[in-house]
Design a protein around this nucleic acid. Structure first.
Length: 533
DNA sequence: TTGCAGTCAATATC
DNA sequence: GATATTGACTGCAA
């Protein structure tokens, strides 16, 4: 049905969303012969057919171009059938145009910031500047992303981490040079990769780049060279600045233009970063436990009580929700990979990252009820979260948009609270929150306490995700069968399945389902809910 | 409008 | 010095 609709009534490119454009890109590729039967070979593996073609696309970095054999024709592939008629769909037309036009270096798109190659830093550590991705292939990369088979993001990051550590290459260098991302982003990406199917086209890009990089036989050398060049540049700059005092431009960069008279105005304007105090975070977490989706009023109250800007509170909730969500993703993956070993169902997987998880403690409301299933206790998520995340888990639901939107909704203030404005709202003030309302708090409170002990559980189990678990040094994905190693190809699903086999998981899922059910029921009844799960 | 994904960049930690 | 964490932003979609 969708196909029919698309073929008969194609929307203009400009009206399409990223997702909506994907089918057209696929069609174009298919027309170009880039896609075999139109079915994306999920085998991609590092050398899967598609990927190959991908590589062939010649990443500006050429990094990924592995396939020496992929040869020339590849290049052709790059440019999507230039003249392919494409008669009808203008969308495709625009696409081809887009693809053909010399694409701006990726960063340009990314940051939206002008490439400004002249950037001072560039001058010194020039090499770093960027993204070798420049070249015409910036767009190609997007194309690649669109046509790329499902990749095993977890496996890819794992291998990347290994290569980087084995060769003593830093994330910063790798990120700036290969991915066009900052160190923090790279760190985050490597530590908490989202499953392929949960990623947007943009989000997949870094993984495709990583895959290409991994495929590049000279990847390490290239990076090493970069490293050397950077060092050289740094030394040079340092030297020159010392001897010449001539600030040139470098000064402003790396070091500090601190005293300098000129630049200060701007960065004077920089607002200092807000750092939430532990108590404030605690209060926010408690509030989150009660309402993952607080109403504007609640947010305001919270802000007032905590003496924070409402925007800060809003941001905090956004960030917390999404980070917890990601936390779940990797837990899912890890659980899946551990599969049978259900033993360490311990979620905390990431030692360091106790936060969301252990604190997520949040789930309290939910878990608490779990009662016996203490096991669940570890899976920290707030009700809303839990529902949202867990719900979909059951069987076939691997879909991103957990139809079960009920989760969040139920949790929303506005929903069950009196309407918007009314008053008292649950004011999850630090104080109130803890002691406050109904049941959930128990959890909340209890959760508050545990922080300290929380670690207990996790400690027992070796950090699943941590490479340690895999022990096998070189054996990147020791416990993960080769399959996982390369492609995700549905592995996710597989993983999920595994996890599902785990009794604990089943139990948890069942519990969550019942919670959801009860919530829905309660909601329809409009009865005040007593959280006694 | 609201929520989310993806990032950046300042800090914290290791 | 490298890596991890996290508040804030931007852009997009519903």
């Amino acid at each position: 049905g969708s196909v029919s609709d698309m073929l008969s009534r194609p929307k203009p490119w400009s009206k399409l969303t990223q997702k909506g454009r994907e089918p057209f890109i696929r069609m174009q590729l298919w027309l170009n012969g880039e896609l075999g039967q139109g079915v994306l070979p999920v085998q991609g593996q590092q050398q899967g057919p598609v990927l190959h073609s991908v590589t062939s696309l010649q990443d500006p970095l050429q990094q990924g171009c592995v396939s020496s054999e992929s040869t020339p024709k590849t290049s052709a592939s790059c440019s999507p059938a230039p003249e392919s008629p494409m008669s009808s769909s203008e969308s495709v037309k625009s696409l081809t145009e887009l693809v053909q036009q010399p694409c701006p270096p990726i960063e340009a798109n990314k940051d939206g910031k002008p490439p400004e190659p002249s950037d001072p830093p560039a001058s010194d550590s020039q090499p770093a500047t960027p993204l070798p991705l420049s070249g015409h292939s910036a767009l190609s990369i997007q194309e690649l992303v669109a046509m790329s088979p499902e990749l095993d993001t977890y496996g890819i990051t794992k291998r990347v981490k290994e290569v980087l550590t084995d060769n003593n290459l830093g994330q910063r260098l790798f990120g700036e040079t290969i991915l066009g991302l900052t160190q923090g982003s790279v760190s985050d990406l490597l530590a908490r990769p989202k499953p392929w199917h949960k990623l947007s086209l943009k989000g997949r890009e870094p993984f495709v780049r990583m895959q290409l990089w991994l495929n590049d036989p000279n990847n390490v050398e290239k990076l090493m060279d970069m490293k050397r060049m950077e060092k050289k540049a740094y030394m040079k700059r340092r030297h020159s600045s010392v001897s010449d005092t001539q600030p040139c431009e470098p000064p402003s960069v790396g070091t500090e233009y601190s005293q300098g008279a000129s630049p200060q105005p701007q960065h004077q304007l920089k607002k200092p970063r807000v750092v939430l105090a532990p108590e404030e975070k605690e209060a926010l977490k408690r509030a989150y436990q009660q309402k993952p989706y607080p109403s504007p009023k609640t947010i305001e109250d919270l802000a007032t009580q905590l003496n924070l800007k409402t925007s800060t509170v809003i941001n905090w909730f956004h960030n917390y929700r999404s980070r917890i969500r990601r936390e779940l993703f990797i837990e899912e993956i890890q659980a899946g990979s551990q599969g049978q070993a259900g033993a360490s169902d311990s979620p905390s997987a990431r030692s360091g990252r106790a936060a969301p998880s252990s604190e997520g403690d949040s789930c309290d409301g939910v878990e608490a009820a779990e009662g016996p299933g203490s096991a669940d206790a570890e899976e920290p998520k707030s009700q809303g979260e839990a529902e949202r995340e867990e719900a979909p888990r059951p069987a076939e639901q691997t879909e991103p948009p957990p139809s079960g939107t009920p989760g969040p909704d139920d949790a929303r203030d506005d929903d069950h609270e009196g309407g918007p404005a009314d008053g008292p709202g649950p004011l999850p003030s630090p104080a109130t929150a803890t002691a406050a309302p109904a049941a959930p708090e128990d959890a909340a409170t209890s959760a508050a306490a545990p922080p300290g002990e929380g670690p207990a559980a996790p400690s027992s189990a070796p950090p699943p995700g941590s490479s340690s678990s895999s022990s096998g040094s070189g054996s990147s994905a020791p416990r993960r069968p080769s399959s996982l190693q390369s492609l995700f190809g549905l592995p996710e699903a597989a993983g999920a399945r595994d996890s599902r086999d785990n009794p604990l998981r089943k139990k948890k899922a069942a519990n969550l389902n019942s919670i959801i059910h009860r919530l829905e029921k309660a909601a329809s009844r409009e009865e005040p809910i007593e959280w006694e799960f």
